[in-house]
Design a protein around this nucleic acid. Structure first.
Length: 182
DNA sequence: AGGATGATATCC
DNA sequence: GATATCATCCTC
């Protein structure tokens, strides 16, 4: 298992999104190491992407997304659920990858399908917003697979307001994985 | 099909 | 300061 470096995240967002599939997300919390395999993601591009939070420009909320790559962007949605994103591309671009579903690997007892549930299960909340992913407590590792996962591209979910960006194929998931949302 | 529930952006 | 909106999930 090798930890993903800053350089991994410092590339085009849709490439990073697809390469994150099959990797393990690790969160060490109070001596317990929670691990989940990433099976479903969505790419949110820069300011020109109407579905991205950064399309409105730099605000207090989106400052993390405009920051350097390899950091966590965590925010509260619908008053009760957190969403976990990974910042990509150089500082100033405002792009990130939303993690939508995990396959439980270690110490995950609750459901991990869907952005809100996986955060709850992994113990991720908004106090981790801005956290460095090139660290000892929260990071992602590359997993050696016998063969690369079969990746499917699809429209993103819940972004009907984004006009022509709503049906771009920026959601990626591992075909046939039971933990991918339907 | 709709309710829970709160931060945020965008108005006055 | 008020309000509309939201990258969700659960129950009916």
């Amino acid at each position: 298992m090798e930890k993903l470096t800053r350089e991994f995240y410092n590339r085009e967002t849709s490439i990073v999104a697809q390469e994150l599939l099959g990797c393990n997300l690790v969160h060490r919390l109070q001596g317990v190491e929670r691990v989940g395999k990433i099976v479903e993601v969505e790419a949110y591009l820069g300011q020109h992407d109407l579905a991205s939070h950064t399309s409105k420009g730099l605000t207090k909320r989106t400052a993390t997304m405009f920051g350097p790559p390899g950091h966590a962007y965590v925010y509260l949605i619908y008053g009760m659920y957190h969403c976990f994103n990974v910042v990509t591309e150089p500082a100033g671009i405002g792009a990130a990858v939303l993690i939508r579903a995990l396959e439980p690997i270690a110490n995950l007892t609750e459901r991990t399908t869907g952005p809100g549930l996986l955060c709850k299960s992994m113990g991720i909340d908004k106090t981790l917003n801005g956290a460095d992913l090139v660290s000892e407590t929260l990071f992602i590792t590359k997993v050696k697979a016998a063969q690369p996962p079969h990746i499917v591209a699809a429209p993103r979910i819940g972004v009907h307001y984004a006009k022509e960006w709503a049906h771009k194929l920026l959601r990626f998931y591992i075909q046939g994985n039971a933990y991918v949302s339907q």
